[in-house]
Simulated assay, not measured.
Amino acid sequence: MTGTDLHDFRTFLERHVNIDRARLRRLEETVQRLQAALRRHAGFRETEPLFLPQGSWAQQTIIAPGRRTDFDADLLVSRRPEPSWSARPAEYLYSLQAMVAESLGSRHSVRVKTRCVEVSFEDHHVDLVPYVPRPFTGSLSPGSIVNRAENRFEPVDPDGFTRWFLDRDSAAGGHLRHVTRLLKFARDRESGLEVPSVILTVLLGRQIRRATAAGGGYIDLPTALRTVLTDLAHWLSLRPTLPEIADPSCSKAEFGHRLNAHSYGRLRSWIAECSFLVESASTAQDDTERLRCWRLLFGDGFGE
């Protein structure tokens, strides 16, 4: 890699990929107002709630909306278990939806989705995810979220997942978060590619090896991108059918059900294509060819 490559990556992240500070401030202010409104609701206070940032917001992999119309953040809403809902977990979602709607009135759109209550604002939305800690553990983790479509609980360890990802990022010299942002950006450019961010995050994080780090495999961002994609493309090539994609922080949780045979096949071919383009760019002797490969992956904004 050359100094020019490093400069191009930094510039591309700043101009096209990273979410800007103004948007992040609006998101933080929105979450604060939303929390305050909910805490004024007597019924909500009685559930003994706690809030916990989750997903790309907590893992520092949130990206600018790009061609999408808005951006979003996940916020777990931990609450006291309701024994009468043990066979009807979807009630946690319906209850939260009702309390959010009562707290906000008609000022914002509030709708129930499979695992969250989505609250829409001007250019962003917040996904409130009901979270039920396991009783008598003395800790928020592990616990369960709710799958409304299947009316069942799904085990998760939200604190553990975030700690796992940040540990992998540290092992990769702080470059994993940027690799993840770049590939989320590239994913959003691909029509017909339906890969949830959590699956992409898990698959990328699982490729990080401390021995590889010791050998310089993540010495800078372009090198880390090349190493991680090479390893992931190889891992996927050995698995022609959808494998189990386990939650690295919770032995009882698994994410593979969020894909199907078609979307997994599309993911495999896309990662192989990404790896090929990155390898071609990394070994190109000509600056024009190198830039052409990067732009095939990231668009014409790269290297501008």
Rank of each mutant, 00 (worst) to 15 (best):
A272F: 03
S237F: 06
A281W: 02
I199R: 03
L277P: 00
L200K: 00
G217I: 09
A261M: 04
D231H: 10
E254Q: 11
P243M: 06
V228T: 13
L277R: 11
A233M: 06
L236P: 06
T212C: 13
T223Q: 12
F255E: 01
S263H: 11
E190T: 14
R209L: 14
E244G: 11
T230E: 12
L225Q: 05
C250H: 11
P240A: 05
L193C: 14
L229N: 02
F276W: 12
R268K: 12
R239F: 07
R206K: 15
T223R: 15
P248G: 05
T288S: 09
R210C: 10
Y264R: 04
V202H: 03
A253N: 15
N260Y: 09
T223S: 11
D231Q: 11
Q207G: 02
L277D: 00
L238E: 14
L232R: 00
R258T: 04
H257S: 12
G205H: 04
H257D: 11
V228D: 00
R226L: 14
E279M: 04
L225V: 13
D287R: 13
E254V: 04
E254I: 01
P243N: 06
I219F: 07
K252I: 03
R292W: 09
C274A: 13
L225I: 09
K184C: 10
R189A: 11
S280G: 09
T223D: 05
R268I: 03
I245G: 04
T201C: 14
H262C: 06
L229V: 03
Y264A: 06
G217P: 08
E254K: 08
I219K: 10
S237R: 11
I219T: 12
S197R: 04
A272D: 09
E279Q: 12
E194G: 08
E273Y: 07
V202Y: 02
K252Y: 12
D286P: 01
L232N: 00
I271E: 01
L229A: 01
A211L: 15
L277A: 00
F255W: 10
A186M: 10
G216S: 07
E194P: 01
S263T: 15
A211H: 12
I271T: 05
K252F: 11
R239D: 06
A214P: 01
P243T: 02
W235I: 00
D287S: 12
T230Q: 13
S251T: 12
P196C: 13
G256F: 06
P240K: 04
L204Y: 03
W235Y: 14
A281N: 02
R210E: 15
L236F: 07
S269G: 01
E279A: 13
F276V: 00
I245D: 07
K252M: 12
S251I: 10
D286T: 07
W270K: 02
I208P: 03
L238Q: 14
T201N: 12
F255L: 09
E289R: 10
E194C: 13
T288M: 03
R226Y: 05
R206E: 15
G205W: 03
D220N: 15
R209P: 02
D188M: 07
I208N: 02
H262T: 14
V228G: 00
R206V: 02
E273V: 02
D220C: 11
L203T: 03
R187T: 08
T227A: 09
G192C: 13
S237D: 15
V198P: 09
